[in-house]
Design a protein around this nucleic acid. Sequence first.
RNA 1: CGUCCUGGUU
Length: 280
Amino acid sequence: EERRNAAVVQALKHGHIESAQRLLEDMVRSGYAPSRFVTSQAMAFLGRLKKADEVEALFQLLLRQGCPIDTVIHNCVVAAYGEAGNFAAMEAAVERMRAMQCPPDVVTSNTLIRKYLLGGRVEQALGILRVMRRDGSAPNARSYNTVLGMLCEAGQLDAAHDLMQEMREEGCTPTNVSYNIIIKGYAKARQLEDMDKCFQGMVDAGFKPDNITFGQCMSAHRDACALEKVEEYFNLMAQHGCAPDAMTLSILASTYGKLARLDKQQELHDELDSRGYRYD
RNA sequence: CGUCCUGGUU
C-alpha cells in the first residue's frame, strides 16, 4: 500500500496525471485505500486540467469502495467543477458535502468566490463573501484577497483600498499577499506613485516584502523606462533580507535589455544560465 | 505531508 501511494506521488511529480489516475483506480479496485493526501493531490491536478468528469468518477469510485472522504477531497471536486465552468454541478457538490455530514469550510467558500469571479459571475462571488461576513463564518485573508484581486483587475483601486480597511476592522489582518495584490493593481493602472506609497506602507506596517513584491514594483518601473527606480528596488532587497530569485533577476535583465545595457543584461543571463533558468 | 489568494516572457 505504501509503495502504491509512493508510485502515485512519483507519477504526479513527473506530470503523468493519467498514469497517476490509473494507479489510483487500480489501487481502489483491488481493495486498498489510497492515502487521502495522494488522492486529493491527483484530484487537484485533474481539476486544474478542467477534467471535472474524471474527478467525479474518482470520487464515485472512492464512495463505492467505502474509502474515507474528507473535506479536502470534497473541495477538490467543487474546484474541478468550478474550473470547468459547470456552476450548477459545483453548487450541487457543495450540497453533497452537507448531505454527507462534511460541512463546507472556509476553503470551500474561497473556492466558490474564485470560480465565480473567473466565470464573470461577480455578483455571486460578492454574495458568498457577504454571507460569510454576515453569518460569522469568518472569511480569512484569502477570501478578501481573492476579491481584492478582482477589484484591482477591474481598476477599482479605491474600492480595493476600502475593502482592505474593512477587513482590518473586521479583525482579519491583511497579509503580504494583500499588499502584493494592491501593488499589482497600481502597476496595472500605471499609478506608480501610489504603488511606491503602497510599498512603503507595507514596510511601515511591518510586513516583509518578498520576491513577488519586488518583482512587481520592478517590472512596473521597467515598463515606464525608469531604470533608476528598478535598480533602487533591486538594491533595497538586501536591506529587507530578501535574496533575489531567478524571476526577479530576469526582470532586472529585461530592464537592461530594454534600455540597451547589453553588458549588464549578459551578466545576468550568465547568472540565470548557471541556475538553469529559462529567460527570454 | 493534500484543496482556496499575488510576480517576468506569451
